[in-house]
């Protein structure tokens, strides 16, 4: 694998130019809507309402960003989102990686069936399970130090647990696939050395999965962070809602200043974009989903 993975740096050919022209066009087409949104967020509503969104600017300012940040009470909701997403992502990855390890590496009977149960569980539309879970959570009592509503309903626990349960399937599916590409020999060697299951998982397999975990971590963070449905359904105290509801706070009962909303959306999207950039390298390596590894 130390051999150059890519063909030698190509000579400049007309084909290359065409390729770049194509990629650039596609990239710009993909980026244009986002840039337009950012552009709109810099202009007052009255102006875009009068002249349309595709027009020359008369006023440009960052006022909407300031307003979006303060009017929506964003910092609190941001903290709420982290309180939900960070434990959610970590626990999901931990449980899913062990399950994937056990099901793909330990030669357990029924592993296939269990993998299908996990994978299929990920397919269900979220809305299907809302009502029964609502009833369930309302009946699960929690002590006051865990939930001030004294039930699982209207607490972070409900949202975190559902996130974990719902995302487990996808993560087990991807991680099991990934782990299968790891050479079995390493594990065999560890077994010969007398390593127990935990050691095989924690010391031998998991470090090799770091790229996959980073990749899944990025995707999971994005999904949990952007989620609004679970929080909408399982939380009734406004102050506990996640960041997506901060955006709703920028909408009035009737009137919506879309440009303000755009500014808010850009602010809200920043953490996910940041996470993507930070983990991009791992990401590309991490979603190596087990094609022939050579």
């Amino acid at each position: 694998m130390t051999a150059p993975a890519l063909p030698p740096r190509p000579r400049v050919r007309p084909g290359r130019l065409g390729l770049h022209a194509f990629l650039l066009t596609v990239s710009l087409a993909f980026l244009a809507p986002l840039l337009l949104a950012v552009y709109a967020s810099l202009r007052p509503y009255e102006e875009t309402a009068e002249h349309g969104y595709f027009s020359l600017p008369r006023h440009l300012s960052l006022d909407y960003y300031r307003q979006a940040f303060s009017d929506s009470g964003m910092s609190r909701y941001f903290a709420n989102s982290l309180l939900i997403a960070v434990p959610g992502v970590l626990i999901t990855l931990f449980l899913a990686s062990f399950a994937a390890f056990a099901l793909s590496r330990l030669r357990l009977r029924g592993a296939t069936a269990l993998l299908i149960v996990f994978t299929a569980g990920n397919l269900l539309p979220q809305q299907v399970i809302v009502t029964p879970l609502y009833v369930l959570f309302n009946r699960v009592p929690l002590p006051y130090w865990m939930s001030d509503s004294l039930t699982m309903y209207d607490s972070y626990w409900a949202v975190i647990v559902v996130h974990i349960g719902f995302q487990l399937g996808f993560c087990v599916f991807v991680l099991a696939n990934y782990m299968r590409t790891l050479p079995m020999e390493i594990l065999e060697a560890a077994v010969v050395d007398g390593a127990g299951v935990w050691t095989q998982y924690w010391r031998v397999t998991l470090p090799l999965c770091r790229p996959a975990l980073a990749a899944l971590g990025t995707l999971q963070f994005t999904w949990m962070y952007n989620d609004f449905l679970w929080a909408l359904v399982f939380i009734s105290t406004g102050d506990k809602l996640p960041i997506t509801s901060a955006l709703n706070n920028l909408r009035g009962q009737f009137f919506t200043d879309y440009n303000l909303l755009a500014a808010g959306s850009v602010l809200v999207a920043l953490p996910t974009i940041l996470v993507f950039f930070l983990l991009q390298r791992h990401f590309i390596a991490g979603l190596t989903l087990g094609a022939g590894k050579g």
Binding site: I284, G286, T288
Partner: peptide
């Protein structure tokens, strides 16, 4: 670029 991270993970694959 992606290539460097790739060879990085390939090194890990060998498990040594």
């Amino acid at each position: 670029m992606a290539q460097s991270s790739f060879s990085g993970s390939a090194g890990q694959y060998s498990g040594i």
